[in-house]
Nucleic acid binder design. Structure first.
Lengths: 342, 342
DNA sequence: GCTCCTCATGACAACGTTGACATACGCTGT
DNA sequence: ACAGCGTATGTCAACGTTGTCATGAGGAGC
């Protein structure tokens, strides 16, 4: 194998061993034509004997392409993020490209750090689920040729491609579903209001209500932290006799789980629920959980397509793709106000 | 900003602009001491004006360290993998290290390709949830100084650190729980038998049965594909009057979901279930799902600790860490045979 | 006024690879 | 026999950074 611990053989070592020039080794390693069978065999043998492996760092220093893209997520472990991640990975893989993924943890500072770290690694492109509200820090990189696509939320203060979910429409549909089933006092539980998707979903909820000629009490709306304790307290208040909502639209995954936990702790079954984002097992609950689903894989695929298009030379003006949501009715949204239910 | 499209400024450009040598720019960029206040300011200004960003590829070519590790998972989007991923990411982040993650999709060929791709990128270390059963392809890399830690399943045919779950003990405990609640005819549904974890869990099940003096009929054991259709069919058979198991131990996450779906489609509630791996919402089902949980975050953290220890120079012989499981009783495992239940 | 030392800075080469270009060989056609 | 060509191979420099060593200016100590 190699000479001694920690010493990796280089093309030079292989070249000496095979009695050829380094350039010839390069040709063999990269499958370039114009190498005779005999030389090919000798070089291959030398490569195997030494355990040589091309140093891609040096390669991309010379060639200017790293064949890697950066993926900036909210939280890698979150189902939305990880499904997106997989779709992007798959698209990248089919193009011989590697994905560097990282979590911003919803922290703009961390988002920026991570994005710039990726830039230092000279990723060819960046796919970002943004946490911050100012992406001008990317301007020098974009000028230098970086391609960037934003997902789930648009870029702020710069122009860039974006792949989004129709949050307004989705929330409108979710609320409309509850209204259709006889509810007039519907609560909305959303994420922090400065998050664009949260604001859009709130808007969809309002549109559905006013569109149906229903009033909206400020008491019915709680925007804030999505921790279990906070959501539990909010549910408690919304369903109290004082406020008295008969249905709840939950603005995202974590909130939905919080709502279900809180309701199951009390006399669940009287309150109708529609959640935003699907949950594994949602169909096995009783009643099944009615949800408005987005399609993270489609978002990821689309973002990757867009990005690789840019990398292939697409110079058209930035585009904004918007994906529709789908309502999946499973029972929890069909509970009628005042109906008792097992 | 930069001169023209696609041209990234280098340390040389910054140096010229600031009227210093490249090495001085390097010192500034890396926060090395021995630069006067005046020069520091001039260099910083030049960096800002040009939008300079250090090229980490060139840096690691020179220094020999990439400050990145590779993480090879079964499927990035799977909860087990993505939780592991996050724990590893966190550990890496705190050490200024980046994570390259990829999915093998349980395919040994793909595992090998991806692992070797990571090696070409000269990752400092590798954390692998192995799919294949021969890891000798890593030998040249290990000789050359690569650090590797295996997770969930041990390395095969090479000696390497491993961080594992006590699968035998976990399955034993799960089965014992069912036995304790009066079951004598207990089915086991597991993954493909050549997967080490699947085999270990089967062994745990057998140990619990024989330990309790109970016979095990081959009909009660189904090892195979974890697709919903296959699992559904298996459940159908196990619970038929012919075979007549009164309880099922599900060998992993996907199987548990399949089992629950199949049971809810028939007269659910009569069959007791214990699952391996937790599921979000498991506590909201009725009855709540009793599970044997592993701790993917702990595995990830431990693997990262071990790896960074190696990178820091730990030369002790390979270690094998084994993590205990925990039984979380929520109701589905407490159903007694022959008991009707709402 | 001299040595000696510190501190700021610079010169240079090397990391491993590849693109551009050069060379050497054998062959074809006349 | 010689121009002309194609094929196999080699030479060289450059990608952007940093480790090693050298240099020069200024200050302290005698």
């Amino acid at each position: 194998m190699s000479t001694h611990y920690g010493a990796r053989p280089t093309m030079n070592d292989v070249a000496k061993r095979a009695g050829v020039a380094p350039k010839t080794v390069s040709r063999v390693v990269n499958g370039e034509p114009g190498v005779s069978e005999a030389t090919l065999a000798r070089v291959r043998a030398a490569i195997a004997e030494l355990g040589f492996r091309r140093n891609d760092g040096a390669r991309s220093l010379r060639s200017g392409r790293t064949a890697s893209i950066g993926l900036l997520l909210e939280d890698i472990a979150d189902p939305f993020s990880s499904q997106l991640n997989r779709a992007v990975e798959e698209a990248a893989r089919s193009r011989g490209c590697l994905v560097l993924a990282g979590s911003s943890a919803e922290d703009p500072v961390r988002e920026r750090e991570l994005a710039l770290t990726f830039c230092s690694r000279r990723v060819d492109g960046l796919i970002v689920v943004p946490a911050g509200d100012d992406h001008r820090y990317l301007l020098p990189e974009l000028t230098a040729g970086l391609a960037a696509v934003f997902v789930d939320r648009p870029a702020r203060r710069i122009e860039a491609d974006a792949v989004l979910t129709d949050n307004v429409g989705g929330a409108r549909e979710g609320a409309a579903h509850l209204i259709r089933h006889g509810h007039r006092r519907i609560g909305f539980l959303g994420d922090l209001p400065h998050i664009p998707t949260a604001a859009e979903r709130l808007r969809g909820y309002r549109e559905a209500m006013t569109g149906a000629g229903l009033p909206v009490s400020p008491e019915w709306i709680v925007m804030g932290s999505t921790g279990p304790a906070e959501v539990g307290a909010a549910v408690e208040r919304l369903t109290s006799a004082q406020v008295g909502v008969t249905a709840v639209l939950a603005g995202n995954n974590r909130i939905t789980v919080g709502v279900l936990r809180a309701l199951s702790a009390q006399d669940r079954g009287r309150i109708a629920v529609v959640g935003f984002d699907d949950l594994e097992l949602a169909d096995l609950l009783s009643p099944g959980l009615t949800v408005v689903v987005q399609d993270p894989e489609a978002l990821g695929r689309a973002a990757a397509e867009l990005l690789f298009g840019r990398l292939a030379g697409d110079r058209r003006p930035p585009r904004e793709l918007r994906f529709r949501t789908r309502l999946v009715a499973r029972g929890s949204g069909e509970i009628r106000p005042g109906t008792a239910c097992g």
